[in-house]
Design a protein around this nucleic acid. Structure first.
Lengths: 226, 226
DNA sequence: CGGGGGTGTAAAAAGGGTGTAAATGGCGTT
DNA sequence: AACGCCATTTACACCCTTTTTACACCCCCG
């Protein structure tokens, strides 16, 4: 669920924006002053902050500087024409985008989506967790654990595991795996696979000599059976 | 309850200002000399200091320097026209605002309110405190301590730590970290990272050669594991 | 029974990535 | 003008990963 913090003092705009965001399935938090806004940003840790310029209790630039001193949360600035000049200073201070009042619901949502998409891309937030046995794999976070203990995988090992998991249940031929992990030039070097499959088995299987998950398909390739 | 320390030698002005502030619900402390003022500021820890220039026992600039050496308390300067020049020097020394005598009650209270509001924003009170091991990081306040001892981090070191902490648990690629800390132009200079990661490890880890928190993901980037 | 393709392990060899120390240079302060 | 701090650059030793090489094994088939 997306969460947005709206820092705005005008009741009408708050209601208007909250409505629009909630229709999009966003969790909306509100703050009426800059001080409250900073406070809320720290405690709620929203995925996006919408900041109205021209709040009575201080400067938007100062807000941005304070926020940016400890957080990279994307910030969308709302500005009236009268605060045109401040808008630039706020963007310089680290804000990510702006909207000039009056704005349409469509444009508002489009920009919100764009910022949320970007923030989701980078840190890869929606982490798809894969579990099998006592092993837990977070593909996005590049983290693997077995029985609670974090397991270290090398780059190649992780890449191979990723391909296998993304095609779990189906046989992947030697050629398919080699092309996906090592690239087309090594699509014939199937001994790479034997070595790295062995690594994965030793790190993830309970009994590497009798693999339960990482199965061999003789003459064809390998299959990851969850 | 707001508390204000008034450093002023003229009895009339003291009574006048005290009256105005008390009507606003402020707790007012008074000092007649700069020496007493520093003393009182240290013991009372008011939320605001009002400082009259032209006190007989010293220079306002010196007062500010002494005060600022240990405190960020906002300071509102009261100045007569004759001390116009000193006013600038005091502001440079860290004072926050000024009032030129004679002033109206309304203006006085407006500026006091503005400063108090700002000082309230300052602690950004729900400061996101991050703890790991015996290390404690206040991202908003830019302060770091280890085993109770404050640790000094340079600007770059702190910025890097901020990004890592805000994404703790997940791998941040070299490129992501470089873009976030040094900007897009240096997104290829991954040796910057090695150097500054080493700095952070030496300052924060118990055993820098076997880092417990700031982990390397070879060929990929770094991960902060809380 | 013996060979050969396919497979699993175990090690060296090569190479790039990484950690560390120290020199350089810019900048603000004294 | 001298100094200290810090960002940047440079240099180098080392470790880990990858790649290479080597060999034992199993099973089917000749």
């Amino acid at each position: 669920m997306n969460s947005v913090l709206l820092v705005e003092d005008e009741k009408d705009i708050r209601r208007f924006v909250r409505q629009a965001l909630q229709n999009e399935g966003c969790q909306v938090y509100e703050a009426g002053t800059l001080a409250d806004g900073l406070h809320a940003a720290a405690s709620v840790k929203p995925q996006l902050v919408m900041l109205d310029l021209g709040l009575p209790d201080g400067d938007g630039v100062e807000f941005m500087q304070r926020l940016r001193s400890w957080s990279q949360i994307p910030v969308l600035v709302l500005s009236a024409r009268s605060t045109e000049h401040d808008k630039i200073r706020v963007l310089d201070a680290g804000a990510d985008d702006y909207l000039t009042k009056p704005f349409s619901v469509g444009e508002l949502l489009a920009r919100v989506r764009a910022l949320l998409r970007r923030s989701r891309m980078e840190p890869a937030l929606g982490t798809p967790l894969v579990r099998f046995g006592d092993v837990q794999v977070d593909l996005a976070a590049h983290s693997v654990s077995k029985a609670g203990q974090t397991v270290h995988l090398t780059a190649m090992e992780f890449k191979l595991l990723t391909v296998l998991l993304n095609n779990s249940g189906r046989v992947m031929t030697h050629r398919q795996l080699l092309r996906a992990v090592w690239g087309g030039e090594h699509s014939e070097d199937s001994h790479y696979l034997r070595i790295y499959v062995a690594h994965l088995r030793h790190k993830l299987e309970d009994n590497p000599t009798q693999p339960q998950y990482l199965q061999t398909e003789i003459g064809i390739g390998y299959r990851f059976q969850i």
